[in-house]
Design a binder for these strands. Structure first.
Lengths: 187, 187
DNA sequence: TGGCTTAATGCAATATCTTTGCGTTAAGAG
DNA sequence: CTCTTAACGCAAAGATATTGCATTAAGCCA
């Protein structure tokens, strides 16, 4: 009874899947501000009342879709060394998040107040960094502190994406990574 | 003709002021998600159509109010030395932004897409830091780079407020400041 | 000051979106 | 296979958003 509501193959799961897919399709075509619940309902063949009852409102639905899209499908690439692992991950992260759809997902996740969408999304980043750290330790390399990496690398990237006060070039991202690694080595 | 639309004392300015005041009053009483445009319209004695025509929708209005509230009324306190100036400013900034109303303002500003609310709000922080930097130079102290201060101190604070992944204690904020200053001195 | 031009507002009708009651469907358990 | 109940669809009711048109008042110029 207390198991998860969403199951594979059930009607409920099929509806969730249809709605998510429809939202993602719409996001490719139009701006987030133009999307409405009745629009999603019609395209997905689900009645609006079901969407409202299940997700509450449009912003919660968008946040739910965004978290699902941000959920990583695989571990970050193993390049053989901690420095290059970190740089590769950060460059990919910055590119994904700074794209139009990435910024949209960020905004959706942050404007949601139920379900801790922001926290779950943030956890993905922690997990990836933790994976890189674990790899480094296994290799016998000097590891880094995940929290410090968040502060020194991830936080500035997110800040500049959100506030649009600086362009996020690969060079800039690389400089964040290298400065962080130098600081680690220096201590 | 091309001067600013909003004037002191005119009807337009009076309405803007009434609406802003009403929104701020409502935000004290209730949660942001419960506020509606018709509600604001009634309380402020303005018709809903005026609000929609002028601000577009509720989220733009809330962002406009948030930017107005974030606009600093005075320069940061002068404590006599760059280090204490910076620490005092950051502690106050973190406290304001992490409060319930502060997080609400942040969310409003970031979810707005018209009018560059995020950019204007971000500029306030740059200006304050620039003021501190100018003071330091005047005193003959070693100054800091404003962009680096944003990356090293402000960005982590905003990140943790938005994602709720870490408590923002004064000690943590102080450690961000001191680590930044050490790094400056070290170079 | 007085008249002219035009942006901004108010009102009311309309369109769209959101909520809710109730009957129906189907998932999960025994 | 039947029972129980969560989730859904439909349609009506309620609330919000948009728009056309008349009115008000701000700014400008004589």
């Amino acid at each position: 009874m207390a198991r998860e509501m969403v199951r594979q193959g059930g009607r409920s799961a099929r509806i969730q899947s249809e709605v998510h897919r429809t939202v993602q399709d719409l996001l490719k075509t139009m701006d987030r501000g133009e999307i409405t619940v009745p629009m999603i309902a019609e395209k997905s063949g689900v009645t609006p009342s079901t969407i409202y009852r299940r997700w509450g409102d449009l912003s919660e639905l968008l946040a739910d879709v965004a978290v699902a899209r941000m959920r990583p499908v695989a571990d970050p690439e193993d390049t053989g060394a901690m420095e290059s692992d970190l740089e590769a991950f950060i460059l990919q992260y910055a590119e994904e998040m700074s794209s139009k759809v990435g910024r949209s997902m960020l905004a959706d996740v942050l404007s949601s107040m139920e379900g801790d969408a922001a926290g779950r999304c943030c956890q993905f980043t922690y997990d990836h960094l933790e994976t890189l750290r674990g790899r480094a330790l296994t290799r016998g390399e000097s590891a880094f502190d995940v929290g410090e990496a968040i502060d020194a690398i991830v936080a500035p990237i997110i800040y500049h994406i959100l506030f649009g006060d600086r362009e996020l070039t690969p060079d800039y991202c690389r400089s964040l990574v290298s400065r962080f690694l130098e600081k680690c080595a220096g201590v």
